[in-house]
């Protein structure tokens, strides 16, 4: 590297760059958080949606599925599953697991009661209404 470019200059570039871009990141974050209510429809986050998210987390659903594209790639995307399958199908599907078909991927039986099944559906319904800039490309997720 060029001799006229000294270590002190490199160090200043590091500190200056880090501080400047972190501040820019904070500013963008501030703006994002301010604008989110229009996009996430948080007025629709009911008690049931909150409980549904808790069930989603405590059954580690994200260990096999993706939600808005994030998670594991072993099982279908569930961010739009409410639109793809509808609430009744989702409940029947969860209740019927595992399929036990030899050689096929298996989903555990979580022994959810009717209330809990309703909650998870409410959570997935709310999730499907988030403005995701039209992702995923089609209904298959």
């Amino acid at each position: 590297m060029n001799e006229t470019f000294t270590k002190a200059m490199a160090r200043n570039m590091f500190y200056g760059g880090a501080v400047f871009f972190f501040l820019l990141f904070l500013a963008l974050t501030f703006d994002t958080v301010k604008n989110l209510p229009k996009r996430d429809h948080r007025e629709n986050i009911t008690e049931s949606v909150v409980r549904g998210k808790h069930i989603w987390e405590t059954r580690n659903c994200v260990g096999c599925h993706t939600i808005l594209g994030e998670g594991a790639y072993f099982a279908p995307e569930l961010g739009n599953v409410y639109k793809r399958r509808g609430g009744e199908f989702i409940k029947a599907w969860i209740a019927a697991q595992p399929t036990g078909i030899p050689g096929r991927r298996q989903m555990p039986q979580f022994h959810l009661n009717d209330q809990e099944l309703d909650d998870i559906v409410e959570f997935l319904k709310w999730t499907s209404e988030i403005d995701t800039n039209n992702w995923p490309p089609n209904i298959e997720g």
Binding site: A10, G17, F21, F22, F25, L68
Partner: peptide
């Protein structure tokens, strides 16, 4: 050490705002 500083400067200059590549489809603007 001069190399080290330049490398990590570029890391943070690109990488902090680079977080944005995770914010395409999760409901963010």
């Amino acid at each position: 050490e001069k190399w080290l500083y330049v490398i990590i400067a570029m890391t943070l200059i690109t990488g902090i705002i680079g977080t944005g590549h995770h914010y395409f489809w999760i409901g963010t603007p």
